[in-house]
Design a protein around this nucleic acid. Structure first.
Lengths: 188, 188
DNA sequence: GTCTATATAATGATAGAC
DNA sequence: GTCTATCATTATATAGAC
């Protein structure tokens, strides 16, 4: 029944490869090999490499939205929910150590490439930003909600970048602790 | 007399292009056009693209060392010197907004490429790290000197990444202020 | 929907004249 | 030291058979 299986497989494989190797370095051959189809078959599903990128970004946007919804339901307070966000640095630590943050590294790469899809990639950031902002709003920090959201995003990005640079897990644990302390002091 | 002029021009042009477009995307044609030489002439000065990368990294290491020496002499206290570091986010703001941090983005890219020179790129980070560490040491934070150095690096990286993502100057000013507050509270 | 060619353009790299 | 010409390889992308 499902005729979209191959298309989905392409998206998921491209998603992983773009993360691990970068968009530019990932070739059709790389993706084709991973999915086990020929390069020619490829263009039946996507007209160009840029179309795959768009599909991958859309896929990531969907996954992010679902994750935020889960955190929204699971977290009993805005405080707990923000902690869920910070905690992905620990949950995904082994991958972050190897490849950095999937959102930050893609956005940075597309920015350098002046790629037309860089705005779409930024939207992934904005999903987190708006979600965090709404948590801080709920905590009563109405004038600084966006500033605090950006602060959490910024700290997380820095942690991911240096974790990737030095492949240092201890550093991440230390910084995550600091960031949660910052959050707790904010509550006072 | 100077027979290294062309070589130096190549390095400086490559340096800028690697920063603006990324290493992978920058081609020999790009560099050759900028220097106004033919692609063939190129290989008289460098055997491969990787050799240019190595030369560019060495060039950046030199420039960084000189900058750190200047800060060391100019700053009257470790506190002032650390502020010099933080302040580059403001000094280079227009470029950071467009291309991110030259150190962080190169390191991240070379990591994804699994490039053999990624260790050399990390050394640029380590220059800053060791220098900051020595400042914190001088301030008396002997047990946490490296942690604090990494913290400053981390915060700076995050700020640069989001400044690049959102092209937001106000955000950088706000975060730099926060980081300096953090530093001042540390002194107590 | 999948495959095997093949077209086309760009890249890194080399050879050899001047 | 600089150039032109050329090679080999790879990449995106297309055409057409099955």
């Amino acid at each position: 029944m499902k005729s979209t299986t191959t298309r989905d497989e392409i998206i998921e494989s491209a998603d992983q490869l773009f993360y691990k190797k970068g968009f530019e370095k990932t070739s059709f051959s790389d993706i084709a090999n991973k999915v086990n189809i020929s390069r020619g078959n490829f263009y039946h599903h996507f007209k160009s490499k840029d179309e795959i990128l768009s599909a991958v970004i859309a896929y990531r946007l969907e996954k992010t939205e679902k994750m935020l919804e889960t955190w929204q339901l699971k977290g009993k307070s805005p405080f707990e929910r923000i902690q869920s966000f910070i905690h992905i640095l620990i949950v995904n630590l082994s991958k972050i150590k190897l490849y950095g943050c999937p959102v930050g590294t893609l956005t940075t790469e597309l920015n350098k490439l002046q790629h037309s899809s860089r705005g779409e990639a930024t939207q992934i950031f904005s999903l987190f930003r708006e979600w965090l902002k709404s948590q801080f709003n709920e905590l009563g920090f109405k004038n600084h909600a966006d500033n605090y959201a950006m602060h959490v995003l910024s700290r997380s990005q820095g942690i991911a970048t240096l974790a990737n640079t030095y492949h240092d897990e201890e550093f991440v644990h230390y910084e995550v602790k600091l960031l949660i302390h910052w959050l707790q002091n904010l509550k006072k």
